[in-house]
Amino acid sequence: MTRLVLSPNIDAPDNLYADLLAAHEGLSETESAALNARLILILANQIGSREVFRAALDAARRR
């Protein structure tokens, strides 16, 4: 992966979104924040490239 993908790329969007919410169900805000942090780090490792990661950060900041 050399460029940040911002076009639709998720196999089953509704299912994936539901998985994400389900993972947070019943967690306190603190636990949720910790889960998100772990998730971001795991996904960051999947991306690997600093350049792509920074592009993702930029996209997230711009909303």
């Binding site: 924040a33 910790a34 942090a37 772990r38 971001i40 780090l41």
Partner: peptide, 8 residues
């Protein structure tokens, strides 16, 4: 939070 996530 991130620091602890890394350690975990």
């Amino acid at each position: 939070i991130f620091r602890d996530a890394v350690l975990d």
